[in-house]
Amino acid sequence: MSGVLTVARLEFKLRIRAGRWRWLVGAWFVVLAVVTWLVRTAASQPNIVGESVERERTLGAVMFGVVVLVVLALALLVAPALAAQSVNGDRERGTLATLQVTRLRAGEIALGKLLASWGTALVFLAVTLPLALWCYQEGGLSVGRIAGVYLVTALLLGVVCSISLGLSAVLARSTTSGVLAYLTVFALAAGTAIAFGLVTASTQQTVSGSSRVCADATHCTETSYETTISRPDRTWWLLAPNPFVVLADSAPAGPVHGERLPNGQLVEVPADVDVLGSLSRELHRIRATPQRVEDQYGTAFAVPDGVTGGPVWPLGLGIDLALAAGALWLTTVRLRTPTHRLPRGQRVA
């Protein structure tokens, strides 16, 4: 364990001294603060969020939902840069072999490098905490929701760092691994959505339904027809590893508001105002299996109102963490010495 800290401290020190971090982190904060302020201004417009009373109760949640998605998007762009040249960059500079001949184990070097890059990513995340507090001040947010969202964002950044590190260990050239790390992030963030859309569209199912037309209470004609429906309940898992999906779906319960049912009962339902909650409900809905529903107009295959499938994020986060663990394992294997194989065109020292 002390070996891990030795490597992590070394790498962290090198990172801090290498670039203009203060300016970078400062610019990062300013950009996100402006985003938060703009979201607040937009969400305060009368036509955006319901009545004024409700607006006051949920404004913070609305702001927070947008801000964390922007934070995640920008952090996903920063994280690969922090790790994607970690191993092969050291090889190119000739500093890796001198570390490998010490008593540090391969796993310690791998984990230390991961901690250093992840730690740097977490600094960027931590800088946005004051903005989360601002959202909290505006109301509609629980501390648990903030904590949960930050925890999952932190894990997702660790996943991206670990995958990038693995690429830097497998590939000989640091430019190649850099490009591939960004492509991997793109594949997770956009590729999963594209794949889900295309696969769902091309695996539609033909079902039969019927429509009933009644001239009066006793004379009805029923005509059956065939139609195709999409079955996202069979393809939802393609979307699961998407970091935005994982983040939105794993966020602890959002704001609620009171709603009066037709029978006069008052229930609390999720306020349909924040983007995380809406996304999450949409995801639960696509997991639901369509059923044959019958009403006075005929029968059809559809997801009945109020029916939802389970959450998507446990599988998604599970896949992401498994990818990260695999990448860390691969890094360790590639750092192990004495080695049989060398990356193509690579000297050991």
Binding site: K13, L14, A18, D90, G94, T98, A349
Partner: peptide, 10 residues
């Protein structure tokens, strides 16, 4: 080794 790198900023 004959050719090696050092951590420049340390």
């Amino acid at each position: 080794p004959d050719v090696f790198g050092l951590y420049d900023t340390l």
